[in-house]
C-alpha cells in the first residue's frame, strides 16, 4: 500500500497553547482512517492544518508526494484533497444544485458540464429532488448531505469528513454510513473525524487517537478500544 498522506511532527500553537503537538500519521491509498479524541483534542485543528486553513507552527504534510503545508486551501483542493466542515457551510442563496456545481467547477470550467456532474453528485447524496431549493431552506440533514456532495463534486482522492453524522438520527446515520462505504469502494480514500463511536468503529480500518493535541494511540478499532490510554482519555483515570 502506498501513502497518500504523510503527516510528520505536525504542531500548531495558538499563543501559548499547543492545540496540536508533534502528531504524525499516514493515510494509505484506499483506506478509511478515523481520527478520534475527546472534546478539544485537536481533531478539527488537525483538519484545518491538513487542508491549509491553518498554517502549521512546525511539521510537514505531504500529499501524493508533494509538500502541501504552506499551500492555500484552494490549491490543496485542486490537488485532490477536500474537506467538509463540522458546522455545515452551504452557500445560502444558491440552490442545492449550484452549491454542488461549485465543487464541480474546480476541474470543469464549462457550466453545462459542471451542472451535469452536479446533478449526478446530488443524486448520489440523495438530494436530486432538492436541486432547485436554496441552500438556506434545506433541513440540517439535507445540509449535511449537501456538505458531502459539494466536497465530492471536486473529485477528491482524499476526502476529509468532519463529523458528518453529528446531530443526525439513527436511520439517517445509517444512510451516511452506507454512502461513505460506497465512496470508499469507488476508490476514494477517507479521513473521518467523528464523535459517534458507532460510526467510527464501523467504518474505520485504522484509527488515530488524539488527546490534548497529542497522538496517544493508533491501530485497528479493536486495538484502540482495548488501549488503556484511550479508555483513560475518554473515561478518566481509575482511582486506586
Amino acid at each position: 500500500m502506498s501513502e497518500l498522506l504523510q503527516v510528520r511532527n505536525l504542531t500548531k500553537h495558538f499563543g501559548g497553547l499547543a492545540a496540536v503537538q508533534d502528531v504524525s500519521f499516514d493515510v494509505n491509498k484506499g483506506e478509511i482512517v478515523g481520527l478520534i479524541g475527546p472534546n478539544g483534542a485537536g481533531k478539527t485543528t488537525t483538519f484545518s492544518l491538513l487542508t491549509g486553513f491553518l498554517t502549521p507552527t512546525r511539521g510537514t504534510i505531504t500529499f501524493a508526494g508533494r509538500r502541501i503545508d504552506n499551500l492555500k486551501p484552494h490549491v490543496i483542493c485542486r490537488l485532490g484533497m477536500t474537506r467538509t466542515f463540522q458546522i455545515v457551510q452551504p452557500f445560502p442563496e444558491m440552490t442545492a444544485l449550484e452549491n454542488v456545481m461549485m465543487g464541480a467547477l474546480v476541474h470543469h470550467r464549462n457550466i453545462d458540464e459542471a451542472q451535469r456532474r452536479g446533478r449526478n453528485t446530488l443524486a448520489r447524496v440523495g438530494l436530486a429532488h432538492k436541486a432547485d431549493t436554496p441552500g438556506r431552506e434545506l433541513t440540517l440533514v439535507e445540509q449535511k448531505r449537501l456538505e458531502i456532495g459539494k466536497a465530492l463534486a471536486t473529485e477528491p482522492q482524499l476526502l476529509l469528513l468532519d463529523e458528518v453524522a453529528a446531530g443526525l438520527r439513527e436511520a439517517e446515520v445509517d444512510v451516511i454510513l452506507d454512502l461513505v462505504r460506497q465512496l470508499n469502494t469507488e476508490g476514494i480514500t477517507l479521513l473521518i473525524v467523528e464523535h459517534l463511536m458507532k460510526v467510527i468503529m464501523n467504518l474505520s480500518q485504522r484509527i488515530v487517537v488524539l488527546d490534548f493535541g497529542q497522538k496517544i494511540a493508533e491501530g485497528s478499532p479493536a486495538e484502540v478500544s482495548a488501549n488503556p490510554l484511550v479508555l483513560e482519555a475518554y473515561l478518566g483515570k481509575e482511582e486506586d
Binding site: 487542508t51 445560502p92 442563496e93 456545481m101 461549485m102 465543487g103 474546480v106 459539494k150 463534486a153
Partner: peptide, 26 residues
C-alpha cells in the same frame, strides 16, 4: 454571471471558507 467566474464571485460573497475549500481562489 452565469459562467464560472460569476458563480465564483457569488460563492465568495456567500461563504468565503466554503468557496476556498472547494478550490476557489477567493
Amino acid at each position: 454571471s452565469r459562467r464560472r467566474f460569476g458563480y465564483q464571485m457569488i460563492a465568495v460573497r456567500e461563504n468565503e471558507d466554503a468557496a476556498e475549500a472547494l478550490g476557489v481562489d477567493t
